[in-house]
């Protein structure tokens, strides 16, 4: 079994108007090399589900998003995402704004093949005012409580960045927090992985390594070898987020051309070279709070 794919193979699986889920969280472990590749393509009108960071911002800057399903968009150390803000303030994207717990609840419903999962979250807030498609469900038990029926967030494709994978799609996320990547993979028809390292199954570390295997390989459609593929976001424990680059990226909301000419429309290797090379990235310290 060999699931190794190229960037072009992944792009060939995408179509206009599809729903894409992006793993990671804010400025952490985002499949940025795949996001940059989407920005180079002519794919458009995407619905994007994300715990948003520069993945959302970059897609906004390239007008790739028709609708964003989100709880926040942030670059962590830089709290507000300038490209996303601009898209919102110019009314360029539709949004389904949810509590961040509701996002995982919707992914979980999709992962479990359920139409919805009940929750109190959202009640009493404008999340319900602005998302008229959200319906209620009444508890069938004696409490008869009225709850929100959080609909399944079914994804056509999930894109996830991991530390390690073999050719069969046995992936490992070895950073301390796997975020909600498992749910993204389970909620999607197909999941494409970008991986820092592609190793043999023997090199996955046996039982000790298997603890870091956060979802099973049957969920993985393709594996792309993308060393430093999360840059400028972090990929613990290998590298932290590139604050200097994120500042430059943030500033680029005012005029995107210079940033774009410097860093985008390149192959992944060319991009890595443009930001100082793999060694430089691997030396970026992990953030401390």
């Amino acid at each position: 079994m060999d699931k190794i794919v190229s960037y072009q193979d992944v792009i060939d699986q995408l179509f206009d108007g599809m729903t894409i889920g992006v793993g990671g969280w804010g400025a952490r472990r985002k499949p940025m090399s795949l996001i940059r590749e989407i920005c180079r393509s002519d794919i458009k009108d995407l619905t994007v589900v994300s715990y948003g960071g520069p993945d959302v911002g970059l897609l906004c800057a390239h007008k790739k998003i028709k609708k964003l399903i989100f709880g926040f968009v942030s670059l962590d150390m830089i709290p507000l995402e300038s490209h996303f803000r601009q898209a919102r303030q110019k009314n360029e994207i539709d949004v389904m704004e949810l509590d961040e717990g509701m996002v995982q609840w919707g992914l979980r419903a999709a992962a479990m093949n359920l139409p919805f999962l009940p929750t109190r979250v959202g009640l009493g807030t404008d999340v319900l005012t602005h998302n008229l498609e959200l319906e209620y469900v009444t508890s069938p038990y004696s409490d008869a409580e009225k709850l929100v029926a959080m609909p399944a967030l079914n994804l056509d494709i999930a894109l996830i960045h991991v530390n390690k994978s073999d050719e069969k799609g046995n992936t490992q996320i070895v950073g301390p927090d796997p975020f909600f990547d498992e749910l993204f993979a389970r909620a999607a028809c197909k999941t494409f992985i970008s991986s820092e390292e592609v190793v043999s199954t023997q090199e996955l570390g046996g039982k000790d390594g298997a603890i870091f295997n956060r979802f099973e390989r049957s969920l993985v459609t393709g594996v792309l070898h993308a060393p430093c593929g999360a840059h400028p976001t972090s990929c613990a424990p290998s590298y932290g987020f590139d604050i200097k680059h994120l500042k430059e990226y943030s500033e680029a909301a005012k005029s995107f051309d210079e940033y774009s000419a410097k860093y985008l429309n390149k192959t992944h290797q060319e991009y890595i070279d443009s930001v100082g090379g793999a060694e430089t990235i691997l030396n970026i310290p992990l953030p401390q709070f």
Partner: peptide, 24 residues
């Protein structure tokens, strides 16, 4: 989340984040 008109906010902030879930 946002200041001003929701469809094209004067100032877009973070998003509701975990506030709906925290407060309830």
């Amino acid at each position: 989340s946002a200041i001003g008109d929701y469809d094209s906010p004067k100032v877009q902030l973070l998003g509701v984040r975990g506030f709906p879930g925290n407060f309830i």
